[in-house]
Design a protein around this nucleic acid. Structure first.
Lengths: 224, 224
DNA sequence: CGCATGGTTCGATCCTCGTCGAAGCATTCT
DNA sequence: AGAATGCTTCGACGAGGATCGAACCATGCG
């Protein structure tokens, strides 16, 4: 009937509760096995398997076979961004959730979005990097400035473009409703935060918990 | 079993083809009536009405009642952003589009949109009328210029405002993704095209087929 | 080799939800 | 008031798809 991209097909994939739970679980960026995802979604293994093959057919997932384990992961940052956008709308229109719990509060401050940092901290960081002209924004596109390139490599953060993935990309933050930094640079920064042990990932959650000292360091380096 | 925002609920609203077409039609920002949306989605009026109340319940649409017309529009930029994100994934993931059939091609060129002409011809016509300053656009509103008023009445096309329906209205074209002319003037022009037998409506389709001679006449009058 | 474990496929069941015709409201025009 | 138009609700029907148990592959381990 209508032409154009088949948006109903994609949306309906996300529109099943079991599949939505799986995708949500994968938003943490770590690939999971079919059994783990079945548990997350609260369905039996055959059901989960069926859902997973549908998500694969739809191009939303990637599959990495290792021995007899098969790890499913999100197909890319674009898919993650779409899910963030849907979460944002669901948050906005959803029944005013009964006072956000402590974990929700932590999620708002800092969390993992696929492979980069999101939340208030991440939004503040992008603002600051733009202020300091380490990154430049033209017309909703973000790119690295020469001074930014040297700045990040001095920190031991790789900024060379490789593959097709852009170094910098804006990703809309559902809790703050402004952009944070995605792309290979965003991913590299999160890697550094974890590697330096400034923060650790909460168990079974997307929340990222900074240690007091780690927060200081993070603020010194990225929010100064 | 996960908690958090009900993303499946939102996604499943977009996940029905009829609703997806409606939302797509509303992406231009102009609010549309239930009948127009029914036509755009290719469903009957009762079906469309049911979909619309679901979208309202889900908080994706706003409703503006004006007399006996009820204009539905997207609930806000966040919703539009979400749909854009879904479109992005759908385009990235489904490059293989089915080959459009002959009727689809005809539909793209010229079709009926509720009671006025849509498609490439209609978009070109609106462009031309604006160029010739027979119509004026301010700020996404379209209105008739004095010269336009005399021009159309010379053609025997009534341009007096009657009832509350606007004389000119922009309507987003799904195939071209730009506006074409709706409102009483748009309807009157389609009436003339049919009355002059420049074109006839295809059976059981929204497509409008111009005769060779009719097309010449149409272009002479409206695309000159 | 068996045997255990992780995953997928098959078959049958069940139920939600999309669909439309007909009828019912609501508003406006004559 | 009566007719016409725009839209919603009701009722019934049908199809798609989500679900799980059981059986079936595949890999790794002793």
């Amino acid at each position: 009937m209508r032409e154009g991209p088949d948006i109903a097909r994609i949306a309906s994939l996300v529109g099943d509760p079991a599949r939505a739970n799986m995708l949500n679980a994968l938003m943490g960026g770590t690939a999971l096995t079919a059994s783990e995802l079945a548990l997350e979604a609260g369905v039996s293994l055959p059901t989960a398997s069926s859902h997973l093959s549908k998500l694969m057919d739809g191009g939303l997932l990637t599959l990495a076979s290792q021995g007899r384990h098969r790890y499913y992961g999100l197909a890319g940052a674009q898919v993650a961004g779409m899910i963030e956008a849907i979460i944002g709308v669901a948050e906005a229109v959803g029944p005013k959730r009964v006072r956000p719990g402590p974990r929700d509060a932590a999620m708002r401050v800092a969390r993992v979005c696929y492979d980069h940092l999101a939340g208030e901290q991440a939004v503040a960081m992008l603002d600051r990097l733009l202020d300091r002209k380490l990154l430049l924004r033209d017309d909703n596109q973000i790119r690295l400035s020469p001074s930014g390139a040297s700045h990040f490599s001095a920190l031991g953060i790789e900024t060379a473009a490789k593959a097709r993935r852009p170094v910098c990309r804006a990703c809309l933050d559902w809790s703050v409703r402004r952009s944070h930094l995605a792309g290979t640079l965003g991913a590299a920064i999160l890697d550094k935060i974890i590697a330096e042990k400034w923060a650790r990932r909460e168990k079974d959650s997307r929340a990222v918990a900074f240690s007091p000292k780690g927060r200081q360091e993070f603020e010194r380096v990225f929010l100064a």
